[in-house]
């Protein structure tokens, strides 16, 4: 046991830096301060072109009455944002987004931790199991959508057939607002829970075994060890999982689009499962109002940024003492 502990790399600063990173004698040090920047420059150039530029350009477009085909017709300042605030459909879309978000993030984290704990036990062919939980994530989302749209068909769907077989009343998975959110959340959870479980598993395996052994010696049972050791040490990872699934949830598009039997991005006959991103798309391409769509995009970006800030604060607050 002792040999294993000492074999772990401890403090990196005691390890001497290998050759390439050290400045060779005789070279002017100024060159080595330029080179790294040159090496990472391509990334930032591409990022500026496909990341920063569209972001700024959207902000610019959002200040105009901007038609998809006619281009900018009128400068309206913050008019699109003002209209957005009093747009009941946008309110409904945001409420739908948050509702689906709650139905995806919470179960995902809970099930991911439980799955990770299971994967961390002694299993035959552990790699096969780990690949197994990741498989749904590797499937094309369009294929998943088609399969689930068939499962959740209101009249001839498989889920309703099972419900009726069990003597229960069938559910209209499209017209019922809550049921439609549940169907979409199921699709999302099915795809992403395994992925999150693997991230949690990695964090689980990074927890030093001797902590558990010491606790066992002190008489702690498995439940006590889980709540007193595992969960606190998992916190930073859990915050990460929550934040990434929140950002993904705020951008939800494909799953609700594919659940809808109607063409377009209406999100159901009465927008009952239209997410903010679907409304953005509908504004841009069905209503051909790029200015309004850009205002929605910028508002969504702001929301995501707020979540990121909340993440930063949370991480420092929660993970601070353990680091």
């Amino acid at each position: 046991m002792n040999t294993r502990t000492t074999a772990r790399p401890s403090c990196p600063d005691t390890v001497p830096l290998p050759g390439p990173l050290a400045v060779p004698a005789g070279r002017r040090p100024v060159k080595s301060t330029v080179e790294p920047y040159l090496l990472i420059a391509p990334f930032f150039l591409v990022f500026a072109l496909v990341g920063v530029f569209p972001l700024l350009y959207s902000g610019f477009v959002s200040l105009y009455d901007w038609d998809l085909l006619d281009g900018p017709t009128r400068f309206v300042g913050l008019g699109n944002y003002a209209a957005l605030l009093s747009d009941a459909q946008f309110g409904r879309a945001l409420a739908n987004t948050l509702s689906i978000l709650a139905m995806t993030t919470v179960p995902q984290v809970v099930i991911a931790v439980l799955l990770a704990a299971l994967l961390d036990t002694r299993l035959r062919a552990p790699t096969a199991w780990r690949v197994g939980v990741l498989l749904p994530c590797a499937m094309g989302v369009a294929a998943v959508g088609v399969v689930f749209a068939n499962l959740f068909g209101p009249t001839f769907g498989f889920v309703n057939a099972v419900l009726q077989h069990l003597g229960l009343t069938p559910v209209d998975w499209q017209s019922n607002r809550f049921a439609s959110h549940l169907a979409i959340a199921t699709m999302v959870n099915w795809r992403w829970t395994g992925y999150n479980a693997l991230i949690v598993l990695a964090a689980l395996q990074a927890i030093p075994r001797e902590l558990h052994e010491a606790a066992t010696v002190d008489g702690a049972g498995p439940v006590r060890r889980f709540t007193a050791i595992t969960l606190p040490l998992l916190r930073p990872t859990l915050v990460f999982v929550v934040v990434t699934s929140t950002i993904g949830g705020l951008q939800l598009f494909t799953e609700p689009k594919l659940l809808d039997p109607l063409p377009g991005t209406n999100g159901g006959a009465t927008h009952q499962f239209q997410t903010a991103n679907l409304y953005l798309y509908q504004s841009a391409f069905d209503n051909q109002s790029l200015g309004y769509a850009s205002a929605i995009a910028c508002t969504l970006t702001l929301l995501v940024a707020l979540v990121a800030v909340a993440n930063h604060v949370l991480t420092r607050h929660l993970a601070g003492p353990t680091r």
Binding site: D172, Q174, P263, N266, A269, T270
Partner: peptide, 15 residues
């Protein structure tokens, strides 16, 4: 496609 069809669907769904 994006207005009439959903509105008629809404009637079929109970509106």
């Amino acid at each position: 496609e994006n207005v009439i069809a959903p509105a008629l669907r809404a009637v079929e769904e109970g509106a």
